[in-house]
Each structure stands twice: as structure tokens, then as C-alpha cells.
């Protein structure tokens, strides 16, 4: 349900990387996700490109269509407009960055069609 956002997007939240290093959510870099996925025996990082952004069925929600990984599988997710995604080389981005910053004090860029987001998949799933 896109109703409640998880607390770990709140500025100052402590995030543990796969190598055990601790970082604040606002300080995370693309490399942190890439290196953590490389270390992880179970998880693999995928590139998910934003193909479409439509208004969702729930209030304050959007429907985002991604093309995921090498196979460019089409996946749709419905999230609240302030839900932040991590864009490669850019950082946290959402469909309503002002709202994300207001709620989480997390600086945030605008998520746009064409942005490539970090996503995960289980190793060996395909």
C-alpha cells in the first residue's frame, strides 16, 4: 500500500552498507549501492529506466512504468508522489521533490521520464 512511507528516508537515518559501513541516508552515493550489490551474494543491482509517469488511482499517488534490466521488462508500480527513488549519478529523486523534502528533510531532485533508477533483483533469478 502506498499509504505509509518507511522511516528510513528521514534525513539522518543510519544506513548500513553491505561491507558494514554506516552512512546517513542523505550522504549515500551511487557507488555505495553498486559496491554493496557486488558484495551481496543474494542481490544484484538492476537499472530501471522510467518510461512513463501517470497519476495513480489513490490520491497523491503516481503510477510509474519502468523498463527493468537487460531484458527491459515492463514493471508498473504505484507509489505516493513523495516516494524517493535513487537515480544513478543523481541521487534521491521523486515526482514531488518539495513534498519529499518537506516530509523527510531529504534534498530531492525531480524524477523524470528517462531517469535510470537503482533497483534490485535476486541473483540467479533470470
Amino acid at each position: 500500500s502506498p499509504v505509509v512511507l518507511p522511516p528510513f528516508f528521514m534525513r539522518g537515518s543510519i544506513i548500513q552498507l553491505a561491507d558494514g559501513e554506516l552512512k546517513r541516508v542523505e550522504d549515500l552515493k551511487t557507488e555505495d549501492f553498486i559496491q554493496s550489490a557486488e558484495i551481496s551474494s543474494e542481490l544484484k543491482i538492476d537499472s530501471s529506466t522510467v518510461e512513463r509517469i501517470d497519476s495513480g488511482q489513490s490520491p497523491n499517488a503516481v503510477l510509474i512504468q519502468f523498463s527493468v534490466g537487460e531484458l527491459k521488462a515492463q514493471v508498473c508500480v504505484e507509489v505516493l508522489v513523495e516516494y524517493p527513488f535513487f537515480v544513478f549519478g543523481q541521487g534521491w529523486s521523486s515526482c514531488c521533490p518539495d513534498r519529499t523534502t518537506q516530509l523527510f528533510e531529504l534534498s530531492c531532485a525531480k524524477l523524470c521520464v528517462g531517469d535510470v533508477c537503482v533497483s534490485l533483483t535476486l541473483r540467479g533469478l533470470r
Binding site: I14, I15, F66, Q74, V75, C76, F86, S119
Partner: peptide, 19 residues
Amino acid sequence: VPVFPWHSLVPFLEPSQSG
């Protein structure tokens, strides 16, 4: 202070979720 794992921050986008 709670510590959250890195992989909770980004979505699992599995093809099986399409459609």
C-alpha cells in the same frame, strides 16, 4: 538509533510484477 540495511532503500522491481 535504528540502523537500516542498504537494500531496504531501493525497490525490488521483478518482471513478474508487470501488468
